[in-house]
């Protein structure tokens, strides 16, 4: 067997990349609580669950409270109004995410809920970010709007300003 020293020049035409794609697919089991929440959306109902220990109404519904490490007990229907807790206005398209910028991604806390839920805030003119961000901040009142034909997924509803700009 003969050996030769590593020759950088000889590798100048060597391939530098190896293309790979992961295409894993899943069928995630939802469990009864999340299933009931999604079913409620078809009836335009927003369902939370209350923790018997801390008594927070956890929305969207969860089968256990992670703070107390206790199962939740009662269903709570939360209101269709609430306040904006935090938001961002996205101007960049992220590869692999099928939504066109600009859009407002927000968390809002709805009446009767102790926690906030993520959703889009729609109905705002986003062409001028400075103007748009003067209209909304933490605490701005919002209302929930449902699609006319909810299909039982979280994008069935979104937020709009309670008092349109």
């Amino acid at each position: 067997m003969t050996t030769t020293p590593f020759d950088n020049a000889a590798t100048s035409s060597a391939p530098a990349f190896f293309e790979q794609t992961w295409d894993l697919s899943y069928r995630h089991a939802l469990g009864q609580t999340v299933g009931a929440f999604l079913a409620g959306l078809k009836d335009k109902k927003l369902l939370g669950r209350r923790c018997p220990t801390c008594e927070r109404a956890l929305f969207p519904a969860r089968s256990f409270c992670d703070r107390c490490h206790e199962p939740t007990t009662d269903w709570v229907e939360v209101g269709h109004r609430g306040v904006l807790e935090m938001f961002t206005i996205v101007y960049e398209a992220f590869p692999g995410m099928l939504v066109d910028p600009p859009y407002v991604l927000a968390y809002a806390r709805l009446d009767g809920a102790d926690t906030a839920v993520v959703g889009y805030l729609k109905g705002l003119d986003l062409t001028d970010v400075t103007k748009a961000t003067q209209l909304i901040t933490t605490g701005t009142p919002i209302q929930v709007r449902f699609s006319d034909n909810p299909i039982g997924q979280v994008t069935d509803f979104w937020f709009e300003l309670a008092s349109p700009a």
């Binding site: 995630h28 939802l30 999340v34 929440f37 999604l38 969207p60 935090m86 938001f87 961002t88 996205v90 960049e92 992220f94 590869p95 692999g96 995410m97 939504v99 859009y103 991604l105 927000a106 968390y107 839920v117 993520v118 959703g119 889009y120 997924q153 979280v154 994008t155």
Partner: peptide
């Protein structure tokens, strides 16, 4: 960022463009 979207809750959050950038922007 698409990979990092799969960090979020299966039913409640992944349909939204949550990722490390939007999470920290909020």
């Amino acid at each position: 960022q698409s990979v990092l979207n799969k960090m979020w809750d299966v039913a409640y959050e992944r349909l939204y463009p949550l990722n490390t950038i939007t999470m920290l922007a909020m």
